[in-house]
Computed example of a mutant assay.
Amino acid sequence: MSERSTQIRALASEPRLEILRLLKYPQQHFSGQVSADPQTFGVCITLIAEALQVAQPTASRHIDLLRQAGFITIRRYQKWSYCQRNEAAIAEYIQWLTAEIGG
């Protein structure tokens, strides 16, 4: 599957869009995270699952597709995984999409 197809598929899901929305302002949505600063280090997948009100394996599948698309990065620390938006990749995708179908 091409990179663009993966990106389009990643964004064709309300839960994945919600993950990107939540991660845009991690301090606002995940201020209770005590293991690491959500803004500088990322947000624990467990907290993302709780915010979406889904099981952690379900959240992990959504997050993995967003990672494959390049929209988020994942950092392991001890036994947890932390997610952050990849703002450069998101901006590049928006620029590509605008050029492809924009006015």
Score class of each variant (00 low, 15 high):
51 A>D: 04
78 Q>T: 11
1 M>V: 12
103 G>C: 05
91 A>C: 04
49 A>M: 06
55 A>W: 06
34 V>Q: 15
44 C>K: 15
83 C>I: 11
17 L>P: 01
68 Q>N: 08
80 W>G: 13
45 I>E: 05
100 E>W: 12
82 Y>A: 06
26 P>I: 09
48 I>S: 01
52 L>S: 06
90 I>A: 05
97 L>Q: 12
84 Q>E: 04
32 G>N: 15
91 A>V: 05
61 R>F: 00
82 Y>G: 07
50 E>R: 10
93 Y>C: 03
46 T>K: 15
34 V>Y: 13
74 I>K: 10
66 L>I: 10
38 P>F: 02
54 V>N: 02
96 W>D: 11
2 S>R: 05
54 V>I: 14
39 Q>E: 15
57 P>L: 04
23 L>F: 07
20 L>D: 10
70 G>Y: 09
10 A>T: 09
63 I>N: 05
16 R>K: 11
9 R>A: 14
68 Q>I: 00
92 E>R: 14
85 R>D: 05
55 A>C: 01
64 D>C: 00
29 H>S: 09
22 L>K: 02
15 P>C: 03
18 E>R: 14
67 R>A: 09
29 H>Y: 15
25 Y>V: 11
37 D>C: 07
84 Q>R: 15
25 Y>F: 14
51 A>E: 08
65 L>P: 02
66 L>N: 04
75 R>V: 09
14 E>A: 12
61 R>M: 03
32 G>I: 09
14 E>F: 06
32 G>L: 15
96 W>K: 04
27 Q>M: 10
60 S>I: 00
31 S>Q: 10
79 K>M: 11
95 Q>R: 15
10 A>W: 02
44 C>Y: 04
64 D>W: 04
81 S>H: 12
61 R>C: 00
97 L>D: 06
37 D>E: 11
22 L>H: 01
39 Q>A: 14
33 Q>I: 08
4 R>M: 11
10 A>H: 03
94 I>N: 11
68 Q>A: 12
